[in-house]
């Protein structure tokens, strides 16, 4: 009986170990690829080479990586900030100042959470053209900061806030906006962190909408550049790997630095109900 049990145990560990290799190997291969030439990458070379410097140089000179990175950074920072302010204010408004009319408005926007982006893409594109925002970062940011999901996420988390504190602040004569900005926000830091990470991920990694709206190389983001590099006639795989590593690094750092908030942000508030 004891022996049978331990064989099962070993099988479970073998399974876990093989799943571990499958999950993590592509990350290793990505880093190894950064140090190799295009031919070596495509032939599946697994060891480290000495092409790192040359790959990085090519990336930053031929592909203008600095500008591309700054584009991505700028878009992401403004999108995250905008999303956090607009969405959390809305969630606070819906939650703290309950009224039948606003409740109705809330249920209507929640209904739209299920609609796939593709269904609004075409009119949105034409709207952006009409507003002369095509090929601008403002157009991209402006259309990305209204997230129903994040409003929903904030509201779910705000439900746990003790409203006596708001009442007490009112009695002390604090204005409504001051209560929100200097009492409420500081005490909801972890919720903001989770929402910021979710928003950061979706903005940094976005592909379809930026592909449509940003049309010149000058305006492109890291994600768009990686995609167009790999569809070149003779792709420079070592350089692509370098770009992928650089694009993935910020997310991995955020992940290991804020793992708790990260997972919470990715899963949203679905588990809290």
């Amino acid at each position: 009986m004891k022996k049978h049990y331990s064989i099962n145990r070993i099988l479970v560990y073998v399974f876990l170990a093989s799943m571990f290799i499958v999950s993590v190997f592509p990350f290793y291969w990505m880093v190894a690829g950064m140090t190799n030439t295009a031919v070596e990458v495509i032939k599946g070379k697994m060891t480290f080479g000495n092409q790192t410097l040359s790959n990085i140089t090519t990336l930053f000179t031929t592909y203008n990586m600095v500008r591309i990175l700054l584009n991505s950074l700028k878009i992401t920072v403004f999108t995250v900030l905008g999303t956090l302010i607009v969405s959390s204010m809305a969630a606070y408004g819906f939650q703290t100042y309950a009224s039948p009319a606003r409740e109705k408005a809330y249920s209507i926007i929640i209904l739209f959470m299920m609609v796939p982006f593709i269904a609004l893409m075409i009119p949105l594109f034409r709207l952006i053209v009409k507003m002369h925002l095509l090929n601008t970062h403002i157009g991209l940011v402006l259309t990305s900061i209204s997230s129903v999901f994040i409003i929903f996420f904030f509201r779910q988390s705000f439900k746990a806030f003790p409203y006596e504190i708001i009442q007490a602040a009112r009695v002390d004569g604090a204005g409504e906006f001051r209560i929100f900005f200097s009492i409420f926000i500081p005490s909801m830091k972890s919720t903001y962190a989770a929402a910021a990470i979710y928003s950061f991920m979706s903005s940094w990694n976005a592909y379809l909408w930026p592909l449509i709206i940003l049309q010149t190389d000058k305006q492109k983001t890291v994600t768009l550049m990686i995609s167009s590099m790999s569809s070149a006639y003779f792709p420079e795989y070592g350089v692509i790997m370098t770009a992928i590593v650089i694009a993935t690094l910020p997310i991995i750092i955020v992940f290991f630095g804020f793992q708790k908030y990260f997972v919470q942000g990715m899963l949203g508030s679905s588990l809290k109900q």
Binding site: V86, S87, M89, A90, Y92, G93, F94, T96, Y97, A98, S99, R102, A105, I109, F112, L120, M121, I122, P123, L124, L127, L142, T143, I145, S146, V148, I151, F180
Partner: peptide, 19 residues
């Protein structure tokens, strides 16, 4: 209440509901 939700409602109206 309306002040707090207005920004989001305007943006969602233009960039989500209308499309």
């Amino acid at each position: 209440g309306w002040l707090f939700v207005s920004l989001a409602l305007i943006l969602l109206g233009v960039f989500l509901f209308y499309p």
